[in-house]
């Protein structure tokens, strides 16, 4: 590695660090826009845009899902274990939707602070296991 090589290497390192700083600042400034959803606590704190469409994310509250008998209408609570929001949805739910599962709902808050969802997405977690292991874990718990 001679003198010229070293100079070029330093130049490349400089380019990378400049771009990294620029990208870091840009992403920091855009932080709120990049987040896909607001949590129920953020909504309780008034951070969600009122009268605007946004996404709500959290866990489906246990024993809170109510299906309407005559239509596709369903209501359920979404919680982050601190605060919760009541969600109303009219449509087909994804396969992974169940109580205790993470979901992301697209919609807006109405005047009674009920979240009227246009779309409900289920969030999958990073755990993969066979069905037999799951039942075994459940038995071990109870």
């Amino acid at each position: 590695m001679n003198h010229i090589h070293k100079q070029r290497a330093i130049l490349i390192a400089l380019i990378i660090s400049c771009v990294a700083i620029a990208a870091g600042l840009a992403l920091y400034a855009l932080q709120q826009n990049i987040n896909l959803f607001y949590s129920p606590s953020q909504i309780a704190a008034g951070q969600a845009p009122p009268a605007h469409e946004f996404r709500l994310g959290g866990l489906v509250q246990m024993h809170s899902v109510h299906h309407d008998n005559n239509s596709l209408r369903v209501t359920f609570g979404v919680t982050d274990n601190k605060n919760s929001v009541l969600v109303q949805y009219n449509g087909v739910l994804p396969d992974l939707f169940r109580e205790g599962q993470s979901v992301v709902a697209d919609g807006r808050l109405d005047s009674h602070n009920v979240f009227i969802a246009d779309q409900v997405l289920a969030k999958h977690d990073e755990r993969y296991m066979p069905a037999a292991v799951k039942t075994f874990l459940k038995q071990a718990k109870s």
Partner: peptide, 11 residues
Amino acid sequence: PMWGAWWVWDA
């Protein structure tokens, strides 16, 4: 099938 959407503009 899993999420319920082909595409989402997440990060």
